[in-house]
Amino acid sequence: MRELFRNKRKGKKTMELFTSPVLNLFIILIPFLLITAVFVQTSVIDLSLPSGKNKTTSEEMKAPKEKLLILSIAPQGFYLILGEKLLKIIPKEEDTFSFTKLGEILQKVKDEFPEQTSIIIEADDGIIYDHIIHAMDQCRNCGLINISLSASKG
């Protein structure tokens, strides 16, 4: 019995996987993949400026159902203006802009006017770029794809 057990153990010991070729392959593959790996991906947001050969004006003429929707970003918070009247004021909460609330309200506006795809973002001089990009993201998430930037007068 003991003899048998020993033999079995011995037999197992001699069986080994021949792993060095796999390891060689890995050692070559891993540095290669590490070099080519892209950890930070960037993307772009397109803006079209009015120029001589611009098409946006004619497109705007084709969609008369669209209303003028303006999102104004002031140091105190967001002002949402539809047509001529002020639709909603979203004040800052604890000194930060409440982007989730803005998203909810924009979604409500979009549900009410499903044809609306354009929005004008009007920002105050002191608003930082990051907040504008976040506001644009919220607009895009709600289906308001045609985003224009405008500067407040003065």
Binding site: Q41, T42, S43, V44, I45, D46, L47, S48, L49, S51
Partner: peptide
Amino acid sequence: FGEISLQVLR
């Protein structure tokens, strides 16, 4: 330069 893109992190 009328076709402007703003680059952002994805």
